[in-house]
């Protein structure tokens, strides 16, 4: 089994999918000759030609709008939005079109579409290259929102997204691209969308999170272990649909839940998870649910001290978890 970075896992999966299914096309800004601003699509145009991996004009509404048309007309487009922050011009196309097309046509039409977008901060990207935008879409029935936390998951979830008959938003954390490495099998495999994954078993507290934060939580769990606190880590892998069953299982098991996301606190997916636990497992809890999330500012600032103050780190997770364990 090869060891790959998170980015390589995504690129190799795209390559494998392009080889497997001639209906797949990739397009977006700079994804062709340049291979994407993060090099995720590097070499793909060379291998598959300009018809299948192409640069589009700079217009997000057009990228998603045309992808919807192409999906209806027999292709499996994987458009890229260069930064998740730039997805907003296309929100109308995603929310009001892609998400509603099946419903509004009573099942007649479907939009098999995977929208890839790098997101997240800690990379000096400031307000418009750092955002976590996932919850805007998690709110919308008709969409699926996938956020892998490891190279292995990145592959299996991307392949599953490509197979999915519905629009899937596939968010890739920029800071994960090169920092995360792991073993990735060569053969194709699917990880079902909507299935969470227990990344670490524990008995004292549960940390529920996703994406890059999974790795920070794992690091925190090691530190906590030394202090005699046993932390369980549930990686949601997708935030729509949520794996309600596994969320409730871990909450009932440890009785103490810490939810972590880089996305803003208010209205973040942590609120939904808290509500689910409160509705279905309140009397199994030994402490109030705790959320550790990005502060309620519109986006991440640029200047290092401000950026650091915003970012969730493993130290911040350790601290919050320790606090919760003591309750």
């Amino acid at each position: 089994m090869a060891v790959m970075s998170y980015l390589e896992a995504i690129r190799e999966t795209l390559r494998q999918e392009l080889r497997r299914d001639s209906r797949i096309i990739i397009y977006g800004e700079d994804v062709g000759v340049r291979g994407g601003v993060f090099r995720v699509t590097e070499g793909l145009q060379k291998e598959f030609g300009e018809d299948r991996v192409m640069d589009s004009p700079l217009a997000e509404a057009a990228i998603i709008g045309t992808a919807i048309g192409a999906a209806v007309n027999g292709l499996r487009p994987i458009p890229e939005i260069q930064f998740a922050d730039f997805i907003f011009p296309a929100i109308n196309q995603i929310v009001q079109e892609a998400a509603r097309i099946r419903y509004r046509s009573n099942g007649d039409f479907g939009v098999p579409l995977v929208i890839r977008a790098p997101f997240g901060g800690g990379v000096h990207g400031a307000l418009y290259h750092s955002q976590s935008v996932e919850v805007f879409f998690a709110h919308v029935p008709g969409l699926k929102v996938v956020i892998p936390g490891t190279p292995y998951d990145a592959k299996g979830l991307l392949a599953a997204a490509v197979e999915d008959e519905d629009p899937v938003l596939y968010f890739e954390h920029k800071a994960a691209y090169r920092s995360l490495k792991g073993e990735v099998p060569e053969e194709r495999y699917l990880i079902p969308i909507g299935k969470a994954d227990l990344k670490r078993s524990g008995k004292d507290i549960s940390i529920i999170t996703y994406g890059l934060m999974v790795n920070y939580a794992l690091k925190a769990a090691e530190a906590l272990e030394k202090e005699g606190i046993s932390a369980e880590i549930l990686d949601l892998r997708s935030i729509r649909p949520l794996d309600v069953q596994m969320i409730l299982e871990t909450a009932k098991k440890t009785g103490k839940v810490l939810i972590v996301h880089e996305d803003n606190l208010t209205g973040g997916i942590g609120g939904e998870i808290s509500a689910l636990i409160a509705e279905h497992a309140l009397f199994d809890l030994d402490a109030p649910i705790r959320r550790l999330a990005g502060p309620d500012v519109p986006a991440m600032p640029y200047s290092p001290p401000l950026e650091h103050a915003f970012m969730i780190t493993s130290d911040k997770i350790t601290e919050a978890a320790r606090d919760l364990a003591k309750f």
């Binding site: 709008g65 919807i68 192409a70 007309n73 027999g74």
Partner: peptide, 20 residues
């Protein structure tokens, strides 16, 4: 093609159908 109420979204859809 199925259509919504927000005008001009169909223009890009047509371009997409033609792309395919």
């Amino acid at each position: 093609m199925t259509t919504g109420s927000v005008v001009a979204t169909q223009d890009v859809h047509a371009a997409g159908l033609a792309l395919a």
